[in-house]
Simulated scan of single mutants.
Amino acid sequence: MNTKQLQYFLATAEQGSITAAARELDVAQPAISLQLANLEHELKIKLFERDFRGVELTEAGRCFEEHARIILTQINAAKADLMGSKKDCKGKVVVGLSQSCCNVLSIELLTELEHRFANVELSFRIGPSMAVEQWFNDEEVDIALSFNPAGINATQRSIPLIRENLYLYISHHPKNPAYSELALYGSIHFRDLQHYDIFMPVEQDAMYRLLTEQAQKSGIKLKPKNAFGQLMTTLHYVTQGFGLAVLPSSGAFHLETSNQIRAINIVQPALQRDVYLQMIEKKSQDVAVISVFELIREVTASMHNQQFWRGSLLDKKYARPSRMQLETLAAG
């Protein structure tokens, strides 16, 4: 679902015909028809009844119309917040974040920034969680995504961003016989992780602490396998069938969508961790830093909506109704 589809949908609903909507928007009629068909296919909902006189909203379409207007209003408000200071928005902004957060945010963040704020130079400083926390406390970065609010200076601005789900990742074709049984698993109890070698980061990292603390609570001992420092190198070993890794979807969604890797749900208990977005207090009046801060919030909501960053979205400012929510509402 994208803004163009929502705009075409609302124009067609208001005009009562695709032809009239095409004239109103100065867009070719086939383009509108195609986008509406794609929208109905994605939602699995029939939005319009069509006849020789034009189109009329179905009951589901009328329900969706209300949400479409809310979504576009939120998007436009977000753009207005950012674009209002566009003329003065220039400078360099440094963001500290983990490899997994960078993986899910970087491309869309850079694309949107180039489109909206061409005079802002964005630089990523990527490292393990303890390094990101140190950079932020030493004010070597302007913005940070952290997993440990206690490790952040209390005077800095901080908001909970997302509570991300953690999964056990495995190749579709594991070459290690010890992993072959996992190829059929949809979920695994946390206690059962003790039977497998799992790639884990250094002991000071937030992920290592989370896993070992939960292992202590569960009365088990994990068998850590040293990761390679670079997430992509570790994931390469996993996709090739030579290892397992516990990661959030943010770190591996691109490999999931290309069917190179598979996520197994961890249950009893499910594993989650909170991601916090921080801004250096003295940068709170810097237009470029504020714009990037807000854009990270918006892009996070977008990636969550697309299920690339799975979990509970804690920051609701740019939240959009999911397809499941819309289908439930349309069903009554």
Score class of each variant (00 low, 15 high):
2 N>V: 02
3 T>S: 11
4 K>H: 01
4 K>Y: 04
7 Q>V: 12
18 I>H: 09
20 A>V: 01
20 A>R: 15
20 A>L: 12
21 A>K: 04
21 A>E: 08
22 A>W: 06
25 L>G: 01
26 D>W: 02
28 A>R: 10
29 Q>S: 00
30 P>Q: 08
30 P>M: 05
32 I>P: 06
32 I>N: 05
33 S>Q: 02
33 S>V: 02
33 S>D: 03
34 L>K: 14
34 L>I: 13
37 A>N: 10
39 L>F: 13
40 E>I: 02
49 E>H: 12
53 R>N: 14
55 V>R: 10
55 V>I: 15
60 A>H: 13
66 E>Q: 12
67 H>Y: 10
67 H>V: 03
68 A>P: 09
76 N>R: 12
77 A>W: 06
86 K>I: 12
87 K>E: 13
88 D>S: 12
88 D>R: 13
90 K>Q: 09
91 G>T: 04
94 V>N: 07
94 V>M: 12
96 G>E: 01
100 S>Y: 03
101 C>K: 05
102 C>Y: 10
102 C>W: 06
104 V>Y: 01
106 S>V: 05
108 E>W: 00
108 E>D: 11
110 L>K: 10
110 L>F: 03
110 L>I: 00
114 E>R: 07
115 H>K: 13
128 P>V: 07
129 S>C: 01
133 E>F: 00
149 P>K: 12
149 P>I: 11
152 I>T: 11
155 T>W: 03
158 S>Q: 13
158 S>D: 02
159 I>E: 10
160 P>F: 06
160 P>S: 15
160 P>I: 01
168 L>F: 10
170 I>H: 07
174 P>G: 09
174 P>T: 08
175 K>G: 05
179 Y>Q: 11
181 E>K: 10
181 E>F: 08
182 L>M: 03
189 H>I: 00
189 H>P: 05
193 L>D: 04
194 Q>V: 05
197 D>H: 11
197 D>V: 00
203 E>F: 04
205 D>G: 05
206 A>G: 03
217 K>E: 09
217 K>L: 12
218 S>F: 04
221 K>E: 13
235 L>T: 03
237 Y>G: 00
240 Q>V: 02
242 F>R: 13
243 G>N: 08
246 V>Y: 12
248 P>V: 04
249 S>V: 14
250 S>D: 07
254 H>R: 13
254 H>K: 09
257 T>C: 11
258 S>Q: 15
259 N>M: 11
262 R>E: 11
271 L>Y: 10
278 Q>W: 07
279 M>C: 08
286 D>F: 03
288 A>Q: 02
292 V>P: 10
299 V>P: 04
301 A>I: 06
304 H>N: 14
305 N>Y: 14
306 Q>Y: 03
306 Q>P: 01
307 Q>S: 15
309 W>M: 11
310 R>A: 08
310 R>T: 15
310 R>Q: 15
314 L>C: 12
315 D>N: 14
315 D>T: 08
316 K>A: 11
318 Y>P: 00
318 Y>E: 02
321 P>K: 04
322 S>W: 07
326 L>N: 07
328 T>A: 14
329 L>K: 14
329 L>W: 01
